[in-house]
Design a binder for these strands. Sequence first.
RNA 1: CGGUCCAGCCGGAGUGAUCGCUGGCCUUUGAACCGCAAGGGGAGAGGGCGAGAGGAAAGUCCGGACACCACAAGGCAGCAUGCCAUGCGCAAGCAUGGGGGGCUUGGUGCAAGCCAGGUUCACAGACAGUGUCACAGAAAACAAACCGCCUCCGCGCAAGCGAAGGCAAGGGUGAAACGGCGGAGUAAGAGCCCACCGCCCCGACCGUGAGGAAGGGGGCACGACAAACCUCAUGCGGUGCAAGACAGAACAGGGGAAAUGGCCCGCCUGGCCGCAAGUCCCGCCCGCAAGGGUGGGAUGGAUAGCUCCGGGUAAUAGUCGCGCGGCCGUCGCAAGACGGAGGCGGUUCGGUCGCUCCGAACUGACAGAUAAAUGAUCACAGCAAGGUGCCGCGAGGCAUUGAGACACAGAAUCCGGCUUAUGAAGGCUGGACCACCAU
RNA 2: GCGGGUGUAGCUCAAUGGUAGAGCGGGUGCUUCCCAAGCAUCAUACGAGGGUUCGAUUCCCUUCACCCGCU
Length: 122
Amino acid sequence: MRLPSHLRLKHASDFARVREKGASYAGKYLVLGVLKDENVAEFGYGLITGRKLGIAVKRNRIRRLLREIVRAHRAEIAPGWHFVVIGRWRAAGATLQDLERDWLKLAKRLGILIAPTAQPAT
RNA sequence: CGGUCCAGCCGGAGUGAUCGCUGGCCUUUGAACCGCAAGGGGAGAGGGCGAGAGGAAAGUCCGGACACCACAAGGCAGCAUGCCAUGCGCAAGCAUGGGGGGCUUGGUGCAAGCCAGGUUCACAGACAGUGUCACAGAAAACAAACCGCCUCCGCGCAAGCGAAGGCAAGGGUGAAACGGCGGAGUAAGAGCCCACCGCCCCGACCGUGAGGAAGGGGGCACGACAAACCUCAUGCGGUGCAAGACAGAACAGGGGAAAUGGCCCGCCUGGCCGCAAGUCCCGCCCGCAAGGGUGGGAUGGAUAGCUCCGGGUAAUAGUCGCGCGGCCGUCGCAAGACGGAGGCGGUUCGGUCGCUCCGAACUGACAGAUAAAUGAUCACAGCAAGGUGCCGCGAGGCAUUGAGACACAGAAUCCGGCUUAUGAAGGCUGGACCACCAU
RNA sequence: GCGGGUGUAGCUCAAUGGUAGAGCGGGUGCUUCCCAAGCAUCAUACGAGGGUUCGAUUCCCUUCACCCGCU
């Protein structure tokens, strides 16, 4: 499963629109903000890793892990959504599994997955 | 001889497979759009090949390249640097060696001190000037005398008190007290005198130089701080890739200010040497007073500013504010550096420097993102805290096991330095220690 | 990326190189039948490390943290 760069949100206006008009929910490590937008064919994602997460190396690592999570679940994400993933300060010491579990919980709760509440997992 | 540990410096983090990310080249396909058509066009997608973070990429503490702005020249102000030699460098700075000072260890000496080793130093100048040196203490920078010491006189039986004079040895304070130890000398003392040492001045001679120094003179007067102001020498125009260039989009191609004037030139080298503040002096008024008001004079007049005036600039323009809109794309941006030869320009006519052209060879290098590319998973290996066993007199070592953990840290115009961070293995230097042997 | 600034008590701020203060807050005691107010008293700090100096919050260097501005 690939993850081309044209799916990324790149303009401050996109982030501002999700922030002001969309819904959001906070987990332990992440905050997920979403906005329905029927004009996009697939979806658009943005990542925010602020200074609270630490030095540049740590911020880069968190961003790469988050991108890997989005890539792994690309097929499950319903089309027509803009969403922004924001790392909270606790994410600085988290593993990929921690972040993935947190992200799935938030994504189900906000309903951007294809089969939101069908399978109760294991 | 055998073996450990510590510190500093260098070093710069294993291999493979699968999936994924960002550029480059090749290739296949090919949307919008133009065209009657042929065709043009190339967004996007697939495949292949190859490349893809550092020694500090970090902090932004210095310097340079480069870009724009300003600019006659010089001075002032401001900032930076500061022992010497050599080498490298455009510079900042770095390396090696040397000189001098501080601290410390050892030797020597009664001591003061001297010598040697180690270590460290932002190490120009305190005989240009100004300033500071709290507390304590008699006295803190030029001399002086608190407790004291001594002589003589007076009073007193005496202890002692008072007056005159001499002295600076001892005590005490302090970070620092105007040479040190010993002797001679004296009423007591004193470089007053003497030996040794220190200090100051001159200094043959030695050294490229910083500087060293035989010897002579002085009886000693000369404190510290310049990372206080400052003085001397040398250097420096300002802003920074968010520099800057191009192409677009959007909004309101909007409004305000301007000749007794607007804006710019850090200040001066133009003028009246024009004002204000501040300081000092004098008069008057108010007030119990502290003080306040006012007039005149002197200083000050720059380190804030104002004014006259000088220079520059100006109407579909320019300048300075306000408001509004945008904040996207391309370039800058990564293939450039050095050396040699020829030509031209300039020159202090030697070299160097600038520009252009031609030719040849060698070396090194070859990330270029922009909400910002290096990641994920699996397997194997390595180091190692800990556990167990064994070996060794001992410091300790070896074997095995080993869940988890795997240094500091991420390019953002580029380069050079500085500083800071840093658990791999490995290497270099220095120090300490253990065991044995010999003395 | 570039440029600038600030760190003093729990909070807000002072302080010529010479013992670190003020206000609010906190603790204890007194006062009151109790509380408030008041009075007395106590504790608490120069971001960190070096250097210069007899002596550093102050001067110099390095470092850490925080804040602001610039398309």
